[in-house]
């Protein structure tokens, strides 16, 4: 990184620190009632206390687990279904319009149906998160398969490759950028739905924890939880784009 860029970065951190300072000032002067707005010092103290003596770590792991299971299930099912639909022209013309029709459905509307089916359980959360997270990946896979360079399919035909070989050797690699950006989008959806399910079903996780903190007017704990949720969102998105760069390196280096 060149020095000028580093300077800007440092200045940018200073600006962010300035905002935190402003927040502290507002809290210290009690411009907003401390019941609603704890200072950053109190939120930080609550964060440290939660991790050293409390069960904040367990709650964080709980939320991460809900997110990860649902997202993994959605990835597997979404890519498999997408490959099945995308690799056949007939399937595409029969199924793809229904998928496009379902896409703008606010996925959280499925929650009451899931509660009626599974009750307020972990299974309900898994179903809802997987259902919500599947759409970006499913549609990206279908679209990625449809957008494969047609000449590659001709080559596969002249080589007498089986359908499975075509999927794994041609279509999946060619559709991988679409699929991975779908997976990144799904991560955000999975986090949001994990929080909603925890709030509704009282499952062990940060979502329920922030709700309980709010009900008890423990605002420092509440802000600590929100900061942690932001951190989860940030870290998972960063991790995903690192994976993306690694997996797709062959595309930029080749050709």
């Amino acid at each position: 990184m060149n020095p000028a860029l580093l300077m800007w970065r440092a200045a940018s951190f200073l600006v962010a620190a300035g905002f935190v300072g402003l927040w502290q000032l507002v809290a210290n002067l009690k411009l907003v009632s401390p019941v609603f707005l704890p200072g950053p010092d109190r939120a930080w103290a609550s964060l440290v206390r939660g991790f050293t003596s409390g069960d904040l770590l367990a709650k964080t792991i709980g939320t991460l687990e809900h997110m990860a299971y649902g997202w993994l299930l959605a990835s597997i099912v979404g890519i498999a279904l997408g490959a099945m639909i995308g690799s056949s022209k007939a399937m595409r013309s029969y199924v793809a319009p229904s998928l496009e029709f379902l896409r703008p459905l606010p996925v959280s509307a499925i929650i009451p149906v899931a509660i009626a089916l599974f009750g307020l359980t972990q299974g309900m959360a898994l179903f809802v998160i997987a259902f919500g997270a599947i759409w970006p990946m499913l549609l990206a896979t279908v679209h990625g398969f449809a957008a494969v360079e047609p000449r590659l399919y001709e080559v596969a035909r002249s080589l007498h490759m089986s359908r499975l070989a075509v999927i794994f050797k041609i279509a999946l690699p060619s559709a991988s950028p679409d699929i991975i950006s779908g997976m990144r989008l799904s991560l955000t959806v999975a986090l949001i739905l994990a929080v909603v399910c925890e709030i509704l079903a009282g499952l062990d996780g940060l979502g329920y924890w922030v709700l309980l903190s709010a009900r008890a007017f423990r605002s420092a704990d509440l802000f600590a939880g929100v900061i942690l949720l932001g951190a989860i969102g940030y870290v998972t998105a960063q991790a995903m784009s690192m994976v993306e760069q690694r997996l797709l390196r062959w595309r930029t280096s080749g050709h």
Binding site: W8, T188, I192, I199, G207, A214, V226, L229
Partner: peptide, 21 residues
Amino acid sequence: RLMEVTIEALRPIPSIALLPI
């Protein structure tokens, strides 16, 4: 460039997490 860190810090907060606040 000055706002970059602030924006990147606020953006990943899932909107629904603000619900209790």
